[in-house]
Structures are given as C-alpha cells and as structure tokens.
Design a protein around this nucleic acid. Structure first.
Lengths: 227, 227
DNA sequence: TAAAAAAGTTAGGCATGACTAACAAGTTTT
DNA sequence: AAAACTTGTTAGTCATGCCTAACTTTTTTA
C-alpha cells in the first residue's frame, strides 16, 4: 500500500537531479556522469549542479570521489526509476484519456511526476489497465521498479534498402515531436530507407505512400526495430 | 483554448495565499480579512503573511490600506475561483475514478491544483462529463468562473424533531472526514435530529436505523438542507 | 612533458518564502 | 482618556536553489 519511496522526502529539485542522472546513464549507455554534463542536461550552471550533488551525496543517493564522476547508489537509482514510472504513466494518461498530443504530454507530465501519492500512481496504473509502454514507445517500469531498456537502434543505423518499424522517439524536444507527427510518422509506422545521402548523411525514407528526406539529426532521434 | 489565468505566473505560495483569502471570505461570510487571521488559516507567522501580501498587492491581486483589512481585487478573486475549480475537479476525479475515499482526496488535490495546464483541466472536466459538485458536496465553478455558494445551514441550526439531508461537509480536516464516514454518514444521508442536549449542545441524530450523539463542533461542520 | 583546455569546486550574491523578536498602530476596557 | 490588549509591520535571520567569477584539479594535446 504505502510505497517505500515515501520514506524519502525529496524536493522537486532533488528529484529532477536524480532523474536526470538516471536518464543520462540510460541514454548515453554509461555508468558514470560528469558534473558539467549533468549541469548541461538540466540547463543549470556547473556550480548549481555541484551544489545539489553535495546534498544528494549527503543523502546517500549519489556517490563520487572528489573530482571524480557521479554514480547513482542503488537507492538513488530506485527513486529515479520510480520517478520515470510516474512520468510515463502520466504521459500515457494524458495521451489516452485527456486528448493530449504526442508533443504536449511531456511538459505537463514533468509537473505531474512530482505529485506525492503512491496510491494515485497505483490506481492510475490499474485504471489504464497496466500499460506496458508510454506514448513515445518507452517501457513503463512496474511497481517493483523493474524495467527494460528501450531498444537503442536508431533510424540512422540503417542502410539504403532496409526496412524497419518505429518503436520509440526521443521525447525531450517538443519541436522534434511536433515535426515527427507533421511528417506523418507515428509509433509502429513502417519505414523503408530509400537512400542514405553521402553528402550530409541525410536519409530518404518512404512510408505509407509518402517519401521524405530527413536530416541525420532527425534520424538519430527515431528508435526503430529492424524488419 | 488557452486560459486567461495563464497570463499570471504565480508561485505555488502565491496561489495558496489567494485561495486562502477566498476561502476565508466564503466560509466566514465577510468581505475583508485580517492579516493575522490569514496567517492563522495558513499556519504561518503573521510576518510571513504580511510579506506575501505585499507581493500580492504589487501584483494588484489584493488591496488594503495600511493597518487595514485585506480584500481581493476582481482579478485576485478570479484566480482564486479558478484554483477552487481545479481543486474540486481533481477531488472529483480522485474520488470517482481513482478509488480515493472522502478523507484522502483533499491532500492530493492540494498538490494537483497547482499543475499548470488549462487544457488538462478542460479535458478532465469533459472526461468526467462536467460534474456539478465535488465529493464533499461543494459546487465546482465552471470554466468561466461562475459558481454558487454552498448552502450555509449546518446541522447545529436544527431543533429537535427536524429532518434534513446532508448536502456538504467541511473538507478541511482529515480526522473529521474519517469520523463522518465511520459513523456511516455520506452525502445525501437523511438525518433526523432527535434532541439537542441542553448541557453541552451536543446533538442526538438518527439516520438509516442508527442513532448517534455528535458534538456541537461536529454539527457545525455538517451542511444540510431542510426537509 | 609542459602548456592549454576542460572539468570540477569554492566563494559570494540574489530571490523566495519561511521564521523570531521588537515595535507601531488601532481597539478595547476600565 | 489612559492602560492594556490585539493586530499589523519592520528588521534581521535562515534554508533552498539558482547565479557569476575565480580558482584548482585533471585531462588533453602540441
């Protein structure tokens, strides 16, 4: 009933930092994170990040040696996963029940993920019948904190002629998400790579009767599964 | 689409103070509120309240003369009503869809009411099919800020022999709400006042095959409609 | 390997929103 | 109407979380 993470009483900021550390670790497939990297991710100054890290070290949620890189303790990681679970459940709720579009969910879920109520999250999960994935295709950690990593193959890994299915997108940029849907792509879209342009490595793709050319940067943010 | 209250960018605290002012005005049927009264309501020191009031005066949401009582400007009142709308819609959501009990909704709704998204509130309203009242029987202001006052007759106004229906409860105390449901009372319960005890003005009431004696303080927090 | 660059840290400030203590202005009470 | 009380205000402090500027340590590269 009562969730074990409620023994921690973290501020919104502390939660943001833990989640950011976790996201960086997942996204860049590393185990340790630099202070400045964290600061940049959160768009704060290195001094601010350093300051907060001190606090989190005091709470035994982060470890590092002086001048060394940052690691999450297992407790820190558990809390971060719990925050990711809350975020993704809220995104799913907004998308499926509140008529939010792909690019609208993130901002509001950022606020909702800080709501303190384990019961609300459990009930939300039940209400939506225990969804496995959020609207961007990312896997929602379960109530025990188990989760799978989202596949890391991006559209830019493919060669001309190969076919794939869109399984997830990088949800961090509103502008990007908006563009994805404007083009006509969505989760599960089947995409054929027609050609990878040598000059700038942009990618000509075709899907549902349409052909588009997308930039390398765009292709880097589209996660796919080979067909 | 975009809500006019989003031109204001108030902090959580500023919102809390505006809402508190509004609630005091409604609950005690006055038009002006003293600084210390506000401080006590919010459980902060008079100095803190005074300090925040200065800020709200600067934003033209509150007026008062020096050493005089506080009034909400029409803008301040509009924002407060909007906050009440959000709070009550969330309470309704928690109660009807998330299996929250009467006494659990308030605390979480206090957090949810600060979420910034007019779209979310509109959609929540639509999703629940435009509810008129929250789980405590209070009227939910509509999207234009129109609202009716909850009837102000309490159980303690009745004399022995009179009958009434429970239309609302004072939702500010968890302990009180818990007690109300333990006794077996709920919205729409029909109550007959058997006797008002002279000694301590406690009230003997009967409802659905049961007889209970409740204190004067209890009766003051139960809003009823005469039958 | 020594200089340059990058990364991390410390010191000192600022805004927010709490606090206590002291003081001033209004309101009662006698 | 003066004393006593209540209410409102000001001043100074503290924690949080952000900032810039300056400094130190580590890493890179010439």
């Amino acid at each position: 009933m009562t969730n074990k993470f409620y023994s921690y009483d973290l501020t919104k900021s502390e939660e943001d930092y833990l989640k950011a550390l976790f996201q960086i670790i997942i996204e860049s497939e590393v185990t340790k994170v630099g202070n400045n990297q964290l600061a940049e991710y959160l768009k704060v100054s290195p001094a601010s990040a350093n300051n907060m890290i001190k606090k989190l070290k005091g709470k035994k949620l982060v470890i590092s040696e002086k001048y060394g890189k940052l690691e999450l303790t297992s407790e820190g990681k558990e809390i971060a996963v719990w925050l990711v679970r809350k975020h993704r459940l809220w995104e799913t709720f907004l998308y499926k029940y509140m008529n939010f579009s792909w690019d609208e969910v993130h901002e509001v879920a950022e606020q909702l993920e800080h709501i303190r109520s384990a019961k609300l999250i459990d009930e939300l999960d039940r209400f939506m019948d225990y969804p496995q994935k959020d609207p961007h295709g990312d896997i929602i950690p379960d109530e025990k904190g188990n989760y799978e990593l989202t596949p890391k193959i991006t559209l830019s890994h493919l060669k001309g002629g190969e076919r794939c299915r869109l399984v997830a997108v990088n949800d961090s940029s509103v502008a990007f998400l908006k563009y994805v849907s404007e083009i006509g792509l969505a989760l599960s879209s089947e995409i054929k790579v027609e050609e990878v342009v040598e000059f700038d490595r942009s990618v000509r793709i075709s899907f549902s009767d349409r052909t588009e050319t997308v930039s390398r940067k765009f292709a880097d943010n589209i996660f796919v599964e080979l067909l």
